[in-house]
């Protein structure tokens, strides 16, 4: 039958055997397919068709998922998203259609109730600037520095409407996520002198990246602040809250 060894000499015989009569042989096959019994050939044939169909469906779904909204994806939107989410979700608009052209900084402050009952408000702390300092001259930035707050804030902005109200569960979760990120990072500092954080306030500072030196564009270099309302801190927002369930 076919070649069973791995030298090229044997392969020459292989295609001689593999003639028009349908005798096939393959280098790493112990038996050529055409010599198999009918049921085996049916199994392989059906499997080949199934693989072809599955691959075609999968690739079509992936394509429709990453392509812009079109006739087909509008018609079959739920079918596509049922297939794609959650495990095949993807987004390859890397720096597209336009790269981000503004630095968004997240700044926070807190109202701390001291043990004697008095209350004080801390200064603003720029958490993004701290991330930036951690990334500076760091060839291997951690996801905790590069992604946690940045993507958390993206999530927050995307899951809130223009009035700053949360949209659905995601919005609520995002708000809590931001509170927890802030508390995980700042609690120790704010309560170093004792007391407990009662409320926090978060604001974003958006500053346009100044256009390149050769550009004649004029862009306001005044940062834009978006201030969120004061948020009450509950035990669920504290680091210990994570372990107490």
């Amino acid at each position: 039958m076919g070649p069973r060894r791995y030298g090229s000499g044997a392969e020459l015989t292989a295609w001689v055997y593999g003639n028009g009569a349908g005798m096939q042989s393959y280098g790493d096959e112990s038996r050529p397919l055409a010599a198999l019994s009918l049921p085996s050939r049916i199994v392989i044939g059906v499997a080949a068709c199934a693989v072809a169909v599955i691959v075609a469906i999968h690739l079509a779904m992936m394509f429709l998922h990453v392509a812009p909204q079109n006739t087909l994806s509008k018609q079959q939107g739920s079918l596509i998203s049922d297939y794609v989410y959650p495990e095949y979700e993807q987004n390859w608009k890397l720096f597209a259609p336009n790269p981000l052209q503004q630095n968004v900084a997240v700044q926070v402050r807190a109202q701390v109730r001291a043990e004697d009952g008095s209350s004080r408000t801390t200064d603003w702390t720029d958490l993004t600037a701290r991330d930036g300092r951690a990334i500076l001259h760091n060839p291997l930035p951690s996801h905790t520095e590069q992604n946690q707050l940045r993507r958390g804030w993206e999530l927050f902005v995307n899951s809130h409407n223009a009035q700053g109200r949360p949209i659905g569960t995601r919005g609520e979760l995002a708000e809590r996520y931001i509170r927890r990120i802030v508390m995980f990072r700042m609690q120790g500092e704010w309560t170093a002198a004792g007391g407990r954080v009662e409320r926090i306030q978060v604001r974003s500072r958006t500053a346009a990246v100044s256009p390149p030196p050769w550009s004649t564009e004029k862009i306001s270099d005044k940062p834009v602040y978006r201030v969120q309302p004061w948020w009450q801190i509950t035990s669920a927002d504290l680091p210990e809250g994570a372990n107490s369930q």
């Binding site: 259609p97 790269p99 981000l100 052209q101 900084a105 991330d131 990334i135 590069q146 100044s210």
Partner: peptide, 18 residues
């Protein structure tokens, strides 16, 4: 994207703090 069209896109990511 307009920035990829006017040839300045690569400039911007390099000037983001992150």
């Amino acid at each position: 994207g307009s920035r990829w069209q006017d040839g300045t896109a690569v400039y911007y990511p390099m000037h983001l703090d992150y």
